[in-house]
Design a protein around this nucleic acid. Structure first.
Length: 640
RNA sequence: GCUGCUGUAGCUCAGUGGUGGAGCACGUCCUUGGUAAGGACGAGGUCAUGGGUUCAAAUCCCAUCAGCAGCUCCA
């Protein structure tokens, strides 16, 4: 007899070698129906796993995250089987589950096309219909290597050789065998809703020097409804694409003649950006920051002193010759702030110095990584450098986090994940700076997070060589994550530039430098905002807030007068006094996602009214001009 | 940078080894209308760039530039 302990604490006795599946059927009909695999003493196993000793067991069922992952993993195997059937001789890479789906890598002389994906899907449906069993076998590692060599699977051989256990497991469906830890669903017919999504190149084991394989991405769900919902979500994400919206709303462009990754901000995009920057500056001034402006290029020597020339060269543009001296386009703003700090002797009484800078930097990014506004080669960081004493560090970090939270919530980002990157254990040579200084800095970051009651993940070994950091990942309106604020303590630059302050003891002490952004970069932030709001910006950010539409030519003068009146109140207003019908003008204004369309005909003109059509509510009827102004002023104030 | 795909009017996209098309946008005119597209006419292109194959190339081949999906890397 074996004793099985279930998650709710109940213990039951069963005969030896009873399988997980049989135990599951014994619990209740719901679990029996939905059982996919089990977790036996913490280890994932198949349903037909025989129980030999007393264990604690939880049954993994459909509708759970773990269940979904197993389903997707099995679907990946089915896909690989289909590919092997259709393209004999294909070599298999790996086929794991990922967020939202799975992929499998193949080495195949034939290049997969979208038509191939359809064929593969059809073959998969065939395999599902055949209702094949996933059978697990365990063999010795040496035997496995020989088998895989025999069947011409060099990547599998490599994988097996890297496994430390003496035995390895395989899963077989009919003619298809794959190295796999498992667990899997029992029969292929469990797969009810799947779709292959795309194919793209991927390096074997993610290494650039390795051969490139073809990766097919797909996804699977327990029901067709869930699959449809997911595909709809993908469509929704596509609709929010900032590159498309940016074009439609005339915000920015890129040019072959300008250069890849170099943004051209059109009037409306530039207007948005300047609104954000004005807001940024005001909020910084309120919090005791000053702002700086620094040059775009500097002599190469500065970059040698800072260490960028040695450690960051691959991201920097080549030197520019100026009268026989070499200058470099700046990839970062920090050395400039340091130079300005060092223009005089600073006392501890002067600290902290909080110096912000909307600094435009240029970095060489490999051509394949460029992506709209989100990854560019020239961008403006909302940078700041805080020079402080070690004692002030914690308070400064706290202030920065609060500022970051304030900025994010102002733009409608209310959910985020926080990472604390600290140095790894036992690799001291990787990091500059003394242990006690690191301890102090890491501690200050931690205490600041704790004081604010923020949850965070501690990332061991993720710190840069020059100091620990806090990274904030924000979630947008449809749940996607974006790199947001970063707060970085820097031990490197104060050291390299010998940056000091005079303490109360009259001696010089090394200053502590914090490097931070609260939005990241203007380009990326605006790109992210576009996708977050799907181009439907809140009134205070919208590049055009109001458009006045005349019904006939008789109201042109009234419309212009209204426009002037609103412009004087600091609103961003356009007039559409063309000869199109009102329905047409409304359509145009709506497609441009303008928050307020004011329709003026003779009725409104005679009584000093406007007919308000808001983006949120449509036709709202007429209002006296003054009432409308109060309303939108309020809306701007509240950043709704 | 790598793998694959793509580049035709301002935009979205048809198209074919033999004198380049549509819809929308744009311009002019008619129309002056009441909450998501009124009508007519017109202008617009070295078919990304540079080579090659061919009697003939926008079409086929190569290179370059740029874009897209990923890999790798980052604000």
């Amino acid at each position: 007899m074996v004793k099985v302990t279930l998650p709710d604490g109940t213990k039951k006795d069963f005969e030896d070698n009873i399988t997980i599946g049989e135990v599951a059927s014994n619990i209740n009909s719901k679990i029996k129906e939905g059982a996919l695999a089990g977790r036996a003493d913490g280890v994932l196993v198949d349903l037909n796993y025989p129980i030999k000793d007393d264990i604690s067991l939880s049954v993994i069922t459909e509708g759970t995250q773990e269940g979904l992952e197993i389903l997707r993993h099995s679907t990946a195997h089915i896909m690989a089987q289909a590919v092997c059937r259709l393209f004999p001789g294909v070599k298999l890479g790996i086929g794991p589950t990922i967020d939202n789906g799975f992929y499998y890598d193949f080495d195949c002389s034939h290049h997969f096309t979208t038509e191939d994906l359809k064929k593969i899907e059809d073959e998969m449906s065939e395999i599902i219909k055949e209702n094949l069993c996933f059978e697990r076998t365990e063999v010795s590692r040496d035997y496995a290597v020989k088998e895989m060599e025999k069947s011409g699977q060099p990547y599998k051989v490599e994988l097996i050789k890297d496994i430390e256990d003496d035995t390895v497991s395989f899963y077989r469906q009919d003619e298809f065998v794959d190295l796999c830890r498992g667990p899997h669903i029992q029969k292929t017919s469990k797969v009810k809703a799947f779709k292959l999504l795309s194919v793209a190149g991927a390096y074997w084991r993610g290494k650039e020097t390795n051969p490139m394989l073809q990766r097919i991405y797909g996804t699977a769900f327990f029901t067709n409804e869930e699959l449809k919902l997911y595909l709809k979500m993908l469509e929704e994400a596509e609709k929010r694409d900032h590159r498309k919206i940016g074009k439609d709303l005339d915000l920015f462009s890129f040019h072959e003649d300008g250069g890849a990754g170099l943004t051209f901000w059109h009037p409306k995009g530039a207007r948005m950006r300047s609104i954000i920057e004005d807001f940024w500056r005001q909020e910084h001034f309120k919090r005791g920051y000053d702002i700086l402006y620094s040059p775009h290029i500097a002599k190469i020597n500065l970059w040698k002193t800072s260490g960028h020339w040695d450690f960051y060269r691959e991201s920097m543009y080549s030197p520019i010759d100026v009268d026989g001296h070499e200058y470099i386009l700046k990839p970062m703003n920090c050395p400039f702030a340091v130079l300005m700090y060092k223009t005089k002797l600073r006392s501890y009484r002067d600290l902290p110095l909080r110096w912000g800078e909307l600094g435009t930097v240029y970095r060489y990014e490999r051509s394949g990584v460029l992506h709209g506004l989100l990854r560019v080669r020239g961008f403006t960081q909302d940078d700041a450098h805080i020079f402080c004493t070690p004692d002030q560090l914690e308070k400064e970090i706290l202030n920065v986090i609060e500022l970051a939270q304030f900025m994010l919530s102002s733009f409608g980002f209310n959910e985020y994940e926080i990472e604390l990157s600290v140095r790894g254990k036992g690799e001291k040579e990787k990091y500059i700076g003394k242990d006690d200084v690191w301890d102090h800095a890491e501690n200050s970051l931690k205490i600041a997070l704790d004081k604010l009651g923020l949850k965070y993940v501690r990332m061991e070994g993720e710190a840069k060589f020059y100091g620990p950091a806090i990274d904030i990942k924000v979630k947008d309106a449809i749940g996607r994550g974006w790199q947001g604020p970063t707060i970085q303590v820097d031990f490197n630059l104060p050291e390299r530039f010998d940056v000091n302050y005079v303490g109360s003891d009259g001696y010089h002490h090394r200053v502590v430098m914090i490097h931070r952004t609260v939005m990241g970069a203007m380009e990326r932030f605006v790109g992210c905002l576009i996708e977050h709001y799907a181009g439907d910006f809140p009134l205070w950010i919208a590049p055009i807030q109001i458009r006045i539409l005349s019904i006939t030519d008789a109201q042109i003068e009234y419309a212009k007068k209204l426009q002037t009146q609103l412009l004087l109140k600091n609103f961003r207003v356009e007039c559409d006094t063309g000869s199109n019908k009102i329905g047409y003008k409304i359509r145009e204004g709506t497609l441009q996602k303008i928050p307020y369309l004011l329709i003026v005909g003779n009725k409104e003109m005679q009584e000093g009214l406007v007919a308000v059509r808001s983006r949120k509510n449509g036709d709202e009827g007429v209002l006296p001009v003054q009432d409308f102004i109060s309303r939108v002023e309020e809306e701007v104030r509240e950043k709704k």
